[in-house]
Structures are given as C-alpha cells and as structure tokens.
Amino acid sequence: MTTLAWDGYINARDLGGFPTALSRSGVTAAGRIARGPRRERLTAAGWDDARAWGLASVIDLRCEHEVGPGEGDHVISDAALDGVTIVNAPTEDQNDPEFWETCAPILDSPEYWAHNWRLQPHLVLSALEAIAGSTPGTLVHCSAGRDRTGMISALLLGNAGVDPAAVAADYATSVHAMAAVEQLVPGAEPEEIRSPAEVDEWMRDKLPIVHDTATRTHEVFDLLGVSIATRSALRRLLIAEQPTQ
C-alpha cells in the first residue's frame, strides 16, 4: 500500500502495490483507485496533489445529508473540481428503521458489513457499479475513510485476488490513522482519542471479519447480485495485466 500525501488529507492510500497472483507483476496496479476520507478535507493544494496523482473520478459513499463543507473546512473554488466527475453512491440508507436499529451501534466496525449486504444489497451494488464505470484514477471515500470505504476496499481487493492478510492490514492502517483524530466530521461529537495499544486490542475480533470478507468476496458478490461484467471491470481497474495461460 502507498500512503498519499495530499495536502489537508489524512488516511489516504493508493490501492496499488498489494500482492495478487492475478497480475503478472504480482501486485495490484497503482494510480487506478485510491481510498480516503471526506474530500472536503482537501485544501486547494491538496486538489492539485490529487490531480498530479491522476484524479479523474470521485465515488462518494456517504448519505446525501453528509455531503458538503462544514465549519473549519477549506474554501475551494469551483475550478478546483474542473474535469473531475463526482458521483454520490451511498452504501446505506440511514433512514431505514431496520438498518438503523441493527447497525447504528456498530457503524464504526466491520461487524455491520454483513447486515448492510443483507438489508440494503442494492445500495452496495450501486456503489460497486459506480466504481466499475468510473474513469481511473478514482477516489473512493466516505466520512472517515475507514468503515464504508473499508468495506468497499476489502471487496475490491478481494475481487482482485489480494492476500486477505494484506487486506486486513490495510483496514488496520485506517483504524490507527483515525484513532488519533478528535473530530472526524465538522459539527459532530468529538471522538475518543485511543492509543495504538487500545486500537490493537479493539481490532482483535474485528480483523478476522475483514480477512473473511476478502477471502469470500465472490460469495458476497453473489449475495449482492454483482454481474460477471461488473466483477471483471472492477478487477481490470486493479490488475495491470492478466497472466498468460
């Protein structure tokens, strides 16, 4: 994994460089898909950094009410977004009473992922289809870049044949990155600052869920109704070359 140093941005990484037997190079391709937190964190210089990386598309996994600048965010000119296609593709409907009752207590954990697939598979499917149809390089983000983005990243990497241990390590990197951030979203209640040891202890029973997601991605895709064409398109985004037969 490669950390992306975009000004004002944290917890941002390129999904290239992960080990996979599906690529002749042995790793996923860089410059195709990046993951990160809410794009409103980017400064004007950060948008320039993103463009230098090759930013062409943004897939925003947040609910509509979460989108937009808040107090303390940087003022960005409309010109900063010229040529960048932004698609809002929320993975969840928080107004759904069953979803909220089931998932609200565990939204900061991969424990809710399977409930999301069960209760709102059409939304997760739509997000994956939006990524498959995007122009690389694509930034996939939610608010913290940890949970919704972590779920989608695990499925993308699992579909690309990435070692599940590496996928779990990527999720752990995001949890550690955001554990030291007091306020993830402007106007929200401050988060508890946790030490690295506390984070590792919290993740003890969470990382196996991420590992399992990457291991059985194709089963999850079956549940979601992901077409063969979409699976192939997502794989091509992360695989530079298919191995010769």
Rank of each mutant, 00 (worst) to 15 (best):
Thr91Tyr: 12
Ala50Leu: 08
Leu125Thr: 13
Thr20Val: 01
Ala154Lys: 01
Gly72Trp: 04
Ser109Lys: 01
Leu61Met: 03
Asp170Cys: 02
Pro164Tyr: 00
Ser195Gly: 04
Val167Gln: 06
Met178Ala: 09
His122Glu: 11
His122Met: 01
Ala44Gly: 03
Trp100Cys: 12
Ile106Trp: 07
Thr173Asn: 05
Asp147Phe: 05
Leu237Met: 14
Ser143Val: 15
Cys142Ala: 15
Glu101Gly: 13
Arg148Cys: 01
Ala165Gln: 09
Thr102Val: 14
Arg62Gln: 12
Asp82Phe: 08
Gly68Ile: 01
Glu182Ala: 11
Ala132Thr: 11
Glu219Asn: 13
Gln242Leu: 15
Asp163Met: 08
Ala127Leu: 12
Ala229Gln: 05
Ala240Thr: 10
Tyr171Glu: 00
Pro243Gly: 06
Asp60Ala: 00
Pro105Cys: 09
Asp14Val: 05
Ala144Pro: 12
Asn116Leu: 12
Thr213Asp: 08
Val167Gly: 06
Asp60Tyr: 01
Val226Pro: 00
Asp212His: 04
Ser57His: 06
Pro243Asp: 04
Ser77Glu: 12
Ala168Trp: 02
Ala80Ser: 14
Asp163Ile: 08
Asp96Val: 02
Ala56Met: 05
Ser25Lys: 13
Pro19Cys: 12
Ala114Glu: 10
Trp53Ser: 00
Ala130Gly: 11
Ala80Cys: 13
Leu234Ala: 04
Asn95Gly: 14
Pro97Met: 07
Leu42His: 09
Val210Leu: 00
Met178Trp: 10
Glu219Ala: 11
Thr138Pro: 06
Thr213Asn: 05
Glu98Val: 15
His211Val: 03
Ile86Asp: 03
Ala169Ser: 13
Ala165Glu: 13
Asp108Trp: 04
Gln120Asn: 03
Ala214Asn: 02
Thr173Arg: 11
Gln94Asn: 10
His211Phe: 07
Pro208Cys: 00
Val167His: 04
Ala44Cys: 02
Pro243Asn: 04
Gly26Trp: 10
Ala188Gly: 11
Ala12Phe: 07
Gly36Pro: 06
Cys103Leu: 08
Ala180Arg: 12
Arg24Gln: 15
Leu61Pro: 01
Arg39Cys: 02
Asp93Ser: 13
His122Cys: 01
Ala188Phe: 10
Arg35Ile: 09
Gly133Ile: 02
Tyr9Ile: 03
Asp212Ile: 00
Pro190Met: 00
Ala180Gln: 10
Thr20His: 02
Ser227Asp: 06
Glu64Ser: 09
Gly83Met: 04
Ala168Thr: 07
Tyr112Ile: 04
Ala89Tyr: 08
Cys103Ser: 11
Pro196Asp: 02
Pro19Arg: 15
His176Ala: 10
Lys206Ile: 09
Asp170Glu: 13
Leu224Gly: 13
Thr3Leu: 10
Ala80Lys: 14
Ser23Trp: 11
Val27Phe: 11
Ser134Trp: 02
Gly133Thr: 02
Asp73Trp: 07
Ser23Ala: 15
Ala21Met: 10
